[in-house]
Amino acid sequence: MTKSKTPLPKIKGTFSTKLIQEIGTGTTKRKVIQSFLYFAEEKDNGEVGLRVLNENNVPTGEEQIISKEELLESFTPEVELYTSTVFPAIQKLNKSLAKADRQRKEGNTFTAEMEYGKALNIDEENIRANFGIGLCYLDRNEAEKATDIFSRLIDLDAAFESEHKHLFNDFGISLRKNKMFDKAVNFYSRAVGLTNDDENLYFNIARCLYEKNDLKEALKNAEKCLEINPDSNPAKKLKNYLSKKISG
């Protein structure tokens, strides 16, 4: 009986790469070597997600996907840097986020805002912190501050990735409850542009349009929801209601 092989641990750590550029011309021509640091994490499918490290040594910005072979060929592992600097910095960021999330769920929005602020000082593009602080503003009906966060989030593709879906949903619902219908529609529409096979997005757009009394557009979106999922009972009810309302 042969023993099954123990799977190798997934790659996770800090890697560096160098970029050599030639600048100048003629006698002034010279080579410049630039070094870049990344946080790399292997996915379940064997591909590797790369995110650049910011000045606070935490991964930030959009994730770049490369093969494991490309990582091992073109990047150098920085084990000591990860252990001594990057890992503790990530832990510090996650600690602030966890505390902020807990305070927000308990209704302590000012304390939560302060903790999300600490996280944003470490990584200003952190999706969880941006959503969290935006939800604090919406919970306190601070529309102007929430609008600033909305403008920041809607430009970040990562805000609409599946790992942030629950935060995305909470934010969209809070926009609607605060009667910020146009922003809620823009928010959901942005997500539709990235993934157009989610019936819930169309249903949420339909609800917002209905609440701002744009019944015909609301009906169109309810129908789009049903095209994707004909069994959606909330969309069926909304479609029937809107059809009757429009026909008089």
Rank of each mutant, 00 (worst) to 15 (best):
E62C: 09
I65T: 13
T28W: 04
K29T: 07
G49M: 09
E47Y: 08
N57A: 12
E42Q: 12
E62Y: 11
N56R: 14
G61Q: 07
E47L: 06
S67R: 10
N57C: 10
V52H: 06
L53G: 13
S35A: 05
N56E: 15
V32D: 01
G61N: 10
F39Q: 02
E47H: 12
P59Q: 12
N54H: 08
I66L: 12
I33W: 00
I66S: 09
G61F: 13
D44S: 14
F39S: 03
Q64V: 15
N45S: 12
D44E: 15
E62S: 15
I65K: 07
N45Q: 09
I66H: 11
E55P: 01
F36S: 06
N57E: 11
N54F: 12
L50H: 07
G61I: 08
K29Q: 14
E55Y: 11
E41I: 13
V48S: 04
F39V: 02
E62L: 14
D44T: 13
Q64H: 12
V32K: 12
E55G: 06
V52W: 03
L53M: 07
L37G: 00
V52S: 11
V48G: 05
K43H: 13
V48E: 03
Q64I: 15
E41S: 08
I33E: 02
L37R: 01
N54P: 02
P59I: 06
K43L: 15
E62P: 07
I33T: 10
E42N: 01
I65P: 07
V52T: 12
G61M: 10
G49S: 12
N54S: 10
